[in-house]
């Protein structure tokens, strides 16, 4: 049994250890993605509102 195979086998506990790490990676990635998406959406909406407000104001300046 090679070192890599021994590492992947995790002493016979691979079917518990690797799914746990996969879940961890998914939760971290999901949190990072959803925080980034929330900020990006909020920023886009804010920019859209500011543009709409600027278009409505008589001198065209941002309020």
């Amino acid at each position: 049994m090679s070192d890599v195979e021994r590492f992947l086998a995790m002493g016979g506990y691979a079917r518990f250890v690797w799914p746990a790490y996969a879940l961890w990676a998914a939760v971290i990635a999901g949190n990072v993605w959803s925080a980034w998406r929330a900020l990006d959406r909020a920023r886009t909406r804010a920019l859209r509102r500011l543009a709409a407000r600027a278009a409505e104001s008589p001198d065209g300046s941002r309020a």
């Binding site: 971290i28 949190n31 990072v32 925080a35 980034w36 929330a38 900020l39 959406r41 909020a42 920023r43 909406r45 804010a46 920019l47 509102r49 500011l50 941002r62 309020a63």
Partner: peptide, 29 residues
């Protein structure tokens, strides 16, 4: 630290949504 970073990003998004009418947004966004 990851929680701190996620919190910073999420609170920034919350602030943008809550302060949608505030004039200070034009200078920061």
């Amino acid at each position: 630290l990851l929680y701190g970073a996620l919190l910073c990003a999420r609170v920034r998004a919350e602030v943008l949504e809550r302060e949608r009418q505030a004039s200070w947004l034009s200078g920061l966004v």
